[in-house]
Design a binder for these strands. Structure first.
Length: 296
DNA sequence: ATGTCGATCGCTGATCGA
């Protein structure tokens, strides 16, 4: 099986690059992030004509994730159980200030007497989709960016990471020992994963890296590091400042595999070619070759 | 550290997020 991940930064803009890439690479599974479109706009016919089935969870302007596969994805679930569907009042404020488009459901007027009433709030950010393809559980994630350490968005990122790790260790991994977690993690796990002169804090801060380690410690392996890799391998370069030309990037897109799959990994590579096209995404695909028959 | 993108609202530019 060939399993890939790519943050396309608008599926509308990148559709023809995506179709070309599918033709050229024929992955069995492709995880997509930052669709930035609602489900009703998803290019179902074009994807199907390219020979792929799709499970998707879209959103206008922000986020949106999909799993494309050469056989129909089964048992599709969206969001992190316990995070997306059971938020408490304390999160309400954070949710409403996370930007345009993240409007919380209307609150009822305060109860008589002004007493505090815990309130359930649905987290609307479409950042996670999971499905079974060829007997493998595929989890596709668009991790929060976090903006800057100390910000409200950073707190959201850390809460999201915590919820993801809990869900994987207590539910998803026990239920699906053969699991792949792929996507835009918005974390460069080690010093080797950023340009040596990188100065920023976000995506590399100690708490984010600790959260990445906690994720790995619940029973996952960074497949990219199972293999010898070129120096300064990155998956994302800022559009500004000629970052791609200077290879001033970061490795923030990852394919993690459960321990049961470790010895089946054959190769993991970054494909820089789409980043060289006209109007590229700022991210480029990562591809894992797994010794796992599609009709397992 | 930010020179670029992409999307929105709604006008052809300002604003936001990354």
């Amino acid at each position: 099986m060939k399993i890939a991940t790519w943050n396309v930064n608008s599926l509308k803009v990148r559709l023809y690059q995506l179709l070309d890439w599918l033709d050229a690479n024929r992955p069995d599974v492709l995880c997509l992030q930052e669709l930035k479109m609602e489900d009703k706009a998803f290019p179902e016919a074009e994807i199907r004509a390219a020979g792929y089935y799709a499970a998707y969870s879209g959103q206008k302007t922000y986020n949106g994730v999909a799993i494309l596969a050469s056989s129909p994805p089964e048992n599709v679930t969206c969001g992190i159980p316990g995070f997306n569907d059971v938020s408490i009042h304390a999160r309400n404020r954070a949710t409403t200030t996370l930007g345009r488009g993240y409007v919380s459901p209307k609150r009822d007027s305060p109860p008589e007497g002004g007493g505090f009433k815990p309130e359930l709030v649905f987290d609307e950010q479409k950042r996670l989709i999971a499905a079974t393809v060829g007997g493998l559980r595929i989890v596709c994630g668009y991790f929060p960016n976090g903006q800057t350490p100390g910000s409200e968005k950073f707190a959201y990122k850390m809460a999201w990471l915590d919820a993801l790790t809990r869900w994987l260790s207590t539910e998803a991994l026990p239920a699906h020992p053969n699991l792949v977690l792929a996507g835009d993690f918005n974390i460069a796990p080690e010093a080797a994963d950023t340009h040596p002169e990188w100065k920023g804090e976000i995506l590399v801060s100690p708490p984010e890296r600790a959260a990445f380690r906690a994720l790995v410690e619940c029973g996952l392996i960074d497949s990219f590091r199972l293999f010898e890799q070129p120096e300064q391998s990155y998956t994302w370069w800022d559009y500004r400042m000629g970052s791609f030309r200077r290879n001033f990037g970061m490795r923030i897109d990852h394919i993690l595999v459960s321990s049961a799959l470790r010895n089946l990994c054959r190769a993991c590579t970054v494909d820089k070619t789409p980043r060289k096209l006209e109007r590229p995404s700022d991210h480029t695909p990562v591809v894992l070759e797994l010794d796992w028959p599609h009709n397992h």
